[in-house]
């Protein structure tokens, strides 16, 4: 029995009424209360526990990344509409007074702002690639991160946030190292979410590439099975929500950031990320808004 109907509006209202999220005006931007955060942290801890023997290095990056680094990822060729660039004020004091006045008068104040050298990080894996530059060791590299990401896609639908956290893993090495690792995690991710009694499935997926050309890129991505998602129904049964996403980048980042394997070839990379807020929302939808009333085996997994 789900907490509410599989309906975006009703589920959003349910989360708000239960006090789990606190609207903050912009769609896709809201506060999370201590219960929401407790579940999120406990799930994140479960991920840490099941991966503890993998030897991943753990990094946290801020929600902004260097603009030049961002440009090298090729993000703007794929998702120009989803990216967010940081602008700031660089004028003289008189301009600052005018800026403040324009805001006070409800006028447009764009003209007082110019681009800075940072952008909002749109993908949890991006910041780590420069640190792989050069030759990676024979066993490759494995990093895990907990990063905030930004997507310019305002929506009243609670699972489509503009800013959210991703528990990310990035593997770098030979094609076999990277693909074996991805396949192992596909299985492991399903098992983890099933152990929380979530009705999950894995499927071949594609990214929301921009424009008509984007449809071609998406078709090609699907055909080559470069992206998988683990999904569960949260706001719709027909279109379940992706809780975990797996991307095989082949040599894309290896080429962009000068990463090589020991044999001198360009390194392959893959990443996977749990959308932490989405996992939490899937749990609330599946088991109700009060964790104390969750099925004993689910509660016991998160509160051991």
């Amino acid at each position: 029995m789900s907490a509410t109907a599989y309906d975006a509006e009703e589920f959003f209202r349910g989360l708000v009424e239960a006090g789990l999220i606190i609207p903050a005006r912009a769609p896709g931007i809201f506060g999370r209360n201590h219960v929401f955060e407790d579940v999120l942290e406990r799930f994140n801890k479960l991920v840490t526990d099941i991966a503890k023997d993998d030897g991943a290095e753990f990094f946290v990056y801020p929600p902004t990344i260097d603009r030049k680094l961002f440009e090298r990822t090729g993000h703007m060729a794929n998702f120009p509409d989803l990216a967010g660039t940081v602008f700031s004020f660089k004028g003289r004091e008189l301009d600052a007074r005018e800026l403040s006045e324009a805001i006070h008068n409800g006028e447009n104040w764009e003209r007082y702002q110019s681009m800075t050298d940072v952008v909002l990080n749109p993908a949890a894996c991006y910041p780590v690639y420069p640190s792989f530059a050069g030759s990676v060791p024979p066993e490759g590299r494995l990093v895990t991160m907990l990063n905030w990401v930004f997507r310019n896609e305002p929506s009243p639908e609670p699972t489509r946030m503009q800013s959210f956290r991703v528990r990310e893993f990035v593997r770098c090495g030979t094609p076999a190292q990277v693909l074996d690792w991805r396949d192992m995690w596909l299985e492991r991710g399903l098992q983890l979410l099933e152990s929380l009694d979530l009705p999950v499935h894995s499927e071949v997926a594609s990214d929301a590439f921009f424009g008509k050309g984007g449809k071609m890129l998406a078709a090609s991505q699907r055909q080559q099975k470069l992206k998988f998602e683990i999904t569960a129904p949260v706001i719709s049964e027909e279109a379940p929500t992706a809780l975990c996403s797996f991307n095989f980048h082949q040599q894309h980042f290896g080429e962009a950031f000068g990463i090589r394997t020991g044999d001198g070839n360009v390194a392959n990379t893959a990443c996977l990320g749990f959308g932490l807020e989405r996992v939490v929302m899937a749990l609330f939808q599946a088991h109700g808004f009060d964790p104390e009333n969750w099925p004993a085996e689910v509660y016991g997994r998160l509160w051991p």
Partner: peptide
Amino acid sequence: TSHASVNVMLALEDEFGVEFPDEMLQR
């Protein structure tokens, strides 16, 4: 590359004044 094939598709649409329907938007 995949990105180059997108540019080719858009240039073909311009040159020949046609529109590629969704079912033809693939590799």
